[in-house]
């Protein structure tokens, strides 16, 4: 495992580090939360676990925990606390810490926690190994905005292991899915122009709600299919609307114009590598390349 060990107590760091290295783990050391965060932020996918002391100068363990989870909400963090720090330990668990350990750290407790994590990691790796052999996954929903969040959550959970391997942000994917589905439902199937939104947001929302329950809009479906290969993630969004002339879209570099008639598309464009429309304009294929990231090794200066 690739472990970041954060503590300003040299002897404690050395002791834990030796134990972990002897067991085949790669250990990156940092003296305080700020230094640890700088190293982590550069390549979050390069670490499998963070073990951090609570009380440190510059940035403490709780602050580090919060900032790390901003970048990777699932990054396991084990907190090391002294006796009498029960309230801080509870706060750390509330903030999403995996576990807390009292000083002096008993290595067997650490090894147990690491073994559990390794099982989870292996499961995620195995999941990714199968993906190239999975047929395109297809979801087809009626034109109801209430279903967009559900589909986004479903895709988000499904694709989450990609983050570990490729550094693909599930938050960015969530935005892409939400925006593409929203476009397909609102502008595609429900045939509501974005200009109405600029005139009156409440009229726009009322019309969306009304058409969601009116024939013939109730008959129209939006489908999303996606497939993952080792090189790329492809997603295709199709609606049953009349389509549109996508050549008339403003230039994506003109954010002011895009804000008026394509804010969602502008966001999609900023997070993917390719957007390909069919001729009719009611099918959008999105391609996100999956880079194989180089692992980050902290330099002596960083440590």
């Amino acid at each position: 495992m690739r472990i970041m060990l954060v503590d300003d107590e040299f002897l404690l760091v050395q002791g834990i580090s030796e134990g972990l290295t002897d067991n085949g783990h790669q250990v990156t050391q940092a003296e305080n939360g700020k230094q640890a965060y700088q190293i982590f932020a550069e390549a979050p996918e390069s670490f499998d676990l963070i073990i951090t002391d609570i009380k440190m100068p510059v940035m403490d363990g709780l602050e580090l925990l919060k900032k790390v989870h901003r970048l990777d909400v699932d990054m396991p963090v084990i907190i090391i606390t002294g006796h009498g720090d029960l309230e801080i330990s509870i706060e750390a668990l509330r903030l999403g810490a995996l576990d807390f350990m009292l000083k002096p750290v008993k290595m067997k407790h650490l090894y147990l926690a690491i073994a559990k994590l390794e099982r989870i990691r292996r499961f995620q790796e195995n999941f990714l190994n199968v993906l190239p052999f999975v047929d395109p996954v297809r979801i087809s929903i009626p034109s109801q905005m209430i279903l967009v969040d559900g589909v986004t959550s479903w895709i988000r959970n499904y694709l989450h292991p990609l983050y570990r391997k490729h550094g693909i942000s599930v938050n960015e994917i969530s935005i892409v899915v939400t925006e593409a589905l929203t476009n397909a439902i609102v502008h595609g199937n429900l045939e509501i122009p974005s200009s109405l939104k600029e005139e009156s947001l409440s009229d726009f929302q009322d019309l969306v709600s009304r058409r969601e329950t009116e024939f013939p809009y109730t008959e129209k479906k939006v489908s999303l299919s996606f497939q993952i290969s080792p090189e790329k993630l492809e997603m295709k969004f199709e609606d049953e609307g009349k389509g549109f002339d996508y050549s008339k879209l403003p230039n994506y570099d003109d954010s002011a114009a895009m804000m008026l008639s394509g804010r969602g598309l502008l966001l999609i464009h900023s997070f993917v590598d390719q957007m390909i429309w069919n001729e009719k304009g009611n099918s959008l294929k999105i391609v996100k390349n999956l880079p194989k990231k180089e692992l980050h090794h902290a330099t002596n200066e960083e440590i």
Partner: peptide
């Protein structure tokens, strides 16, 4: 705002 992705979306949309 604290999230880097959210910051980026605010920047992208100006």
């Amino acid at each position: 705002v604290d999230s880097p992705v959210l910051f980026k979306t605010f920047e992208t949309t100006s």
